[in-house]
Design a protein around this nucleic acid. Structure first.
Lengths: 193, 193
DNA sequence: GTCTATAGTAAGATAGAC
DNA sequence: GTCTATCTTACTATAGAC
């Protein structure tokens, strides 16, 4: 009779994701992935016949699903922009563990990683995120161009603060950035003037 | 009689830096480093007895020197803040090849890279950069806290836009960010209000 | 579905000739 | 100072038992 898996798919992808986010694609050896999941290398290959590349791709697809469900759809729901953004901020804070976890989009972006399946997916996720944010900002009265600029700036601030947090060994830049994010997106300040 | 080196130290460090910035520490195999420099692995070990770790460290030290000379010192020179910042922007644009080259601080930040020599250096570079920027902003009348916040935001925007540029396969986010940077730093807009 | 064992390859690093 | 050749280890991946 069939033996039940010792770790379900959801938990498995989470553990794999944690490794990729910590050490990147090249740093994620099968030994590390094995340790993190409690599965031997051969068992990982049973679930991911495509090896490490498939693991990373499924982790990335899973991240896209999470982002869509927990961030993009709430952003698109009608309601006050302030509330949509506060919901997003809470989700972001969980997703990045308060700044302790790096972003997959950064850690898996590499010119020499096969160039194909990854980069298209990453590009698409960035684009969808920016568009969703720009739409929300636009509902508050800003014109399309200004709304898109603010959305791009917010995404840059988010990823930049994560880079700083990792490099400086403190989550403070990330937490500060999250606190300022609503004003960065909707504030009447005009930094471009 | 002593044979002259086929590649001088400056060019050597530049080539090594290019590899680390493209593929990160783990991705930078000695084969890649050898190809990029035109030196065989054994020759690299002759110049860097400490191996790859020493190469990365010297590349990072070189980046700090460059940053100090071309960015921090010009920022500290007295003169209009607008001009200091414009000078910095030109230097940054060269340093990151208009957005085509990633940042070493991002690519060499990794929890599992020995934890010691690297992370302290990276932390120090981030700190010095932020302080120098905050000082310039403060000369224009902003109080210390606001100036530091703007400096941190600028560094986050810079690194975030580089992450976006790499992930989206276009330098546009980086170029746009550079164009807005003076206003982000000195504008009278108050995004935090 | 998971494991041990192992194949085959590429990694980091060194020895020694020129 | 640079090279070819080599050592040792770690890597990705597979075979086959349970």
């Amino acid at each position: 009779m069939p033996r039940p898996p010792t770790i379900d798919d959801k938990a498995l992808l989470e553990r794999l994701s944690g490794v990729f986010r910590d050490v990147g694609y090249d740093g994620a050896s099968l030994a590390l992935l094995s340790d993190a999941t409690g599965l031997q290398k051969a068992s990982l290959y049973h679930r991911f016949p495509g090896g490490k590349e498939q693991m990373a791709k499924e982790v990335l697809l899973d991240a896209r699903s999470w982002l869509t469900e927990n961030i993009l759809l709430p952003l698109a729901a009608d309601g006050p922009a302030q509330e949509s953004i506060q919901t997003m901020i809470k989700s972001i804070n969980r997703f990045y563990a308060g700044g302790k976890q790096a972003c997959l989009l950064n850690m898996l972006s590499s010119p020499h990683i096969h160039q194909g399946p990854f980069s298209n997916l990453i590009k698409e996720i960035f684009g969808a995120w920016i568009s969703a944010l720009a739409d929300v900002v636009a509902t508050t009265g800003f014109d399309k161009k200004e709304a898109r600029m603010r959305a791009e700036r917010a995404i840059a601030l988010l990823h930049g603060s994560l880079v700083m947090a990792r490099g400086m060994g403190t989550t403070k830049p990330f937490r500060d950035m999250l606190g300022r994010l609503p004003a960065e997106l909707l504030g009447d300040g005009a930094p471009t003037r």
